[in-house]
């Protein structure tokens, strides 16, 4: 089963990701901020990380940057979640090492599809 790490400070949003992804057959782990997310990513192997940008302690940009410092985590697909779609945000996400980004609130169907494609599972 593919494992997804959800890093997001809002418990509501985490519950949304969990219910959507679990019902699509993913195994979901949660972290409430970038620091926690980084810790989890180091401890466990994931097939995908979904990372919110605005978080306490460590934001999504910083977390992704730190993540990419670790040679084992270079090819972990990281999807950033922004609330505003804009080229600037995308550029910033890419610069920090993210691979893709989606706009909040994500549609459950799109989210599932994106997660399937990025983890190499059949859509």
């Amino acid at each position: 089963m593919k494992k997804v790490l959800v890093v997001e400070d809002s418990a509501t949003a985490r519950a949304f990701y969990r219910s959507t992804l679990e019902s699509a057959g993913f195994c979901v782990d949660e972290a409430a901020n970038g620091l926690e997310g980084l810790e989890r990513a180091m401890l466990d192997r994931y097939d995908l990380a979904i990372v919110d940008i605005n978080m306490p302690k460590m934001d999504g940009y910083a977390m992704t940057r730190e993540l990419r410092e670790n040679p084992d985590l270079l090819s972990l697909p990281v999807v950033m979640v922004t609330t505003e779609a804009g080229e600037q945000d995308e550029a910033k996400a890419f610069d920090c090492g993210a691979n893709y980004y989606i706009v909040k609130p994500a549609d459950p169907g799109d989210l599932t599809l994106t997660a399937r494609l990025l983890t190499g599972s059949r859509p």
């Binding site: 990419r68 697909p77 859509p123």
Partner: peptide, 18 residues
């Protein structure tokens, strides 16, 4: 590192769509 990231992602997508 950017190449490794893109390579992983594209490869996964292609695998997903067979």
């Amino acid at each position: 590192s950017a190449l490794a990231g893109a390579r992983g992602v594209v490869d996964n997508v292609l695998a997903a769509v067979a």
